[in-house]
Amino acid sequence: MRQENAKLKQRNQDLEEQLQECQARILKFTLSSDLSDTTVLQEFVKIRDNLSNWVEGLPEICTGFDTHLECALKEFQCYLHIVGGINSYPQGVLEVQSELLMHVVFCRLEVGLLKASVPGMLASDEALLSDLDAGMVSLQSKKDIENLNLWKTNTIRAYVACQRYERGVNEEYNGIIDKLYNLFTCFDFEHHVNWNNKMERLRDDILEPAASLATKMSSSPSRYRWEWYHEAHFPQRVVRKYHLELFIVQDARTHNRIPIANVETLPDETAIGELLVIVFPALFRCADSGHEEIQIEKAVILVRANEDLQRQKRSEDKPSVLGKTVPQTSKDSALGRLN
């Protein structure tokens, strides 16, 4: 019995050690790599709002915006997701200059920071990391995803802690600022712009938070993707009622979001307006095989609202007093104003 008791005590001790080891591994994994969808959403929305405010703080462009924009983008080296092209806008692009400039700046931000394996990482370092990742996959069991993700997280964190990362990301900031400065100096603004101060704000409020978010996403075990929708999602560039549930839809006239409540009684196929530009992409967290992707944030699209629908809605909304129609104020527009 003493021998059996000794064996049981040793067995219990072994199990306790294994339990502590497993708990330590789980705690270490969670602390080093956990990134919630809420955190990603909050940081992305803040970057997007800061970018919108930064662009809206620019003076109005006097004339020739469409011509100057087309010429400036030839040297921009960045693919844009402008639906139909600049020349296809029937009334020109001057009325939507802010949204177009937001789109242009975000596209450069996406290429330089948000879609990079690690912001500022040299091509040679990226190739080495890819080779090491492939080597780890061949050495580890494919079922041991936890160890692989933990290795990736710790490797990227170690890289980010080096001066090599700091130098690379600063060079990327400077490259983005130089490209955008060259772009904006092609336009004729109504007032003088202090570009040194403006670009400092761009760096502090937009570039650095974007690099921080992108680095967190890179080191997370989850994978993410940015979705730019194409004209195939909007046949003949028509935005319909059902699109209001899938996208954040803004009216080019009011520059505010179109709330679905204002058209909820209409059929899903009702034409809400004409698509002008996809301002910001949607963000998804890619799911494991067999599971659906998780949409973290919807894409933002800009439309020229259907004037006939607006007039109809205004007519329906006008209250009557003793049979007489009472005029509505301008804020009671058909599509509404969403702050």
Rank of each mutant, 00 (worst) to 15 (best):
Q3T: 12
Q10V: 02
N12S: 03
Q18F: 06
E21W: 06
C22R: 11
Q23P: 11
Q23L: 15
A24Y: 15
K28A: 11
T30K: 12
T30C: 09
S33Q: 08
D34Q: 08
T39F: 02
N53P: 09
V55G: 04
I61Q: 07
D66H: 08
L69S: 05
A72T: 03
L73V: 08
G84E: 03
S88H: 05
H103F: 02
C107E: 08
L113Q: 03
A116P: 00
P119H: 04
L128F: 03
L129V: 02
S138K: 14
E146M: 14
T153F: 01
E166N: 10
G175N: 13
I176S: 07
F189L: 07
E200D: 08
L202D: 01
D205A: 13
A211N: 07
S212W: 14
A214E: 00
M217W: 01
M217Y: 01
Q236I: 05
V238H: 07
F247C: 09
Q250K: 13
D251I: 05
P267E: 00
T270Q: 14
V277C: 14
V277T: 08
V279R: 04
A282N: 09
D288H: 09
S289Q: 06
E293T: 06
I294K: 08
E297G: 04
I301M: 07
A305N: 13
K318V: 01
L322G: 02
L322F: 11
Q328L: 15
D332F: 15
